[in-house]
Simulated assay, not measured.
Amino acid sequence: MADSPSRIERPLSPHLSIYRPLFTMVMSIVHRITGCALYFGTVLLVWWLLAAATSPGAYDLFTGIAGSWIGRLILLGFTWALLHHALGGIRHFMWDFLVGFGPKERVLLAKATLAGSIGLTVIVWIIGLALKG
């Protein structure tokens, strides 16, 4: 049998703890998290549609739970996740056309995504509560 070469000592990969979290990196992670949240939040949408289609009792149960403070908090989070993910998708769409790749532009787009999602969520909820009466 041939002798195998001795093990080569290679440098270890740096651990995540030595990286400084950048704003754009955090926003990328949040974009992925909101995508997962939307996947599970779609269950709420299906539940609402099924409740509306089946019976008044089922719809009353849904509105009772969704109208509670925890239900509203979940719906607020779902609204924000939907808008944040949509704005992040627009940011990625811009990148498909090679727009906004500079260091300053990337940070500006990430901040605009966060500010826009919060602002739009507030606007959507104000309109929704005003229409509710």
Results as ranks from 00 to 15, higher is better:
1 M>N: 12
1 M>H: 10
2 A>C: 10
4 S>L: 10
6 S>F: 13
9 E>D: 15
10 R>Q: 12
15 H>C: 05
16 L>Y: 09
18 I>T: 15
18 I>G: 09
19 Y>T: 05
21 P>K: 03
22 L>R: 14
26 V>W: 03
28 S>Y: 10
29 I>T: 12
29 I>W: 07
30 V>D: 03
30 V>E: 04
31 H>L: 11
32 R>N: 13
32 R>W: 15
33 I>V: 15
33 I>S: 07
33 I>M: 13
34 T>D: 01
35 G>P: 05
36 C>S: 15
36 C>L: 15
40 F>P: 04
40 F>H: 07
42 T>I: 09
43 V>Q: 03
49 L>I: 11
49 L>N: 04
50 L>F: 01
51 A>S: 14
55 S>T: 15
56 P>H: 08
56 P>N: 10
61 L>E: 06
61 L>N: 06
62 F>N: 03
64 G>C: 01
66 A>I: 07
67 G>K: 02
67 G>W: 00
67 G>V: 00
68 S>N: 06
71 G>D: 00
71 G>F: 00
71 G>H: 00
72 R>D: 03
73 L>V: 08
74 I>M: 07
74 I>P: 02
75 L>P: 02
77 G>E: 02
78 F>A: 00
79 T>I: 03
82 L>A: 14
85 H>G: 10
85 H>R: 09
91 R>G: 01
91 R>F: 03
94 M>Y: 08
94 M>R: 11
96 D>Q: 14
96 D>H: 14
96 D>W: 11
97 F>L: 14
100 G>A: 06
101 F>C: 08
101 F>M: 10
104 K>F: 06
105 E>V: 00
106 R>H: 04
109 L>V: 02
111 K>L: 10
111 K>E: 02
115 A>H: 02
115 A>I: 11
115 A>W: 04
116 G>S: 04
116 G>P: 05
120 L>C: 04
121 T>I: 06
123 I>N: 00
124 V>S: 07
125 W>R: 12
127 I>Q: 06
128 G>P: 02
128 G>I: 03
129 L>M: 13
131 L>R: 09
131 L>T: 06
132 K>G: 10
133 G>T: 03
133 G>F: 02
133 G>E: 06
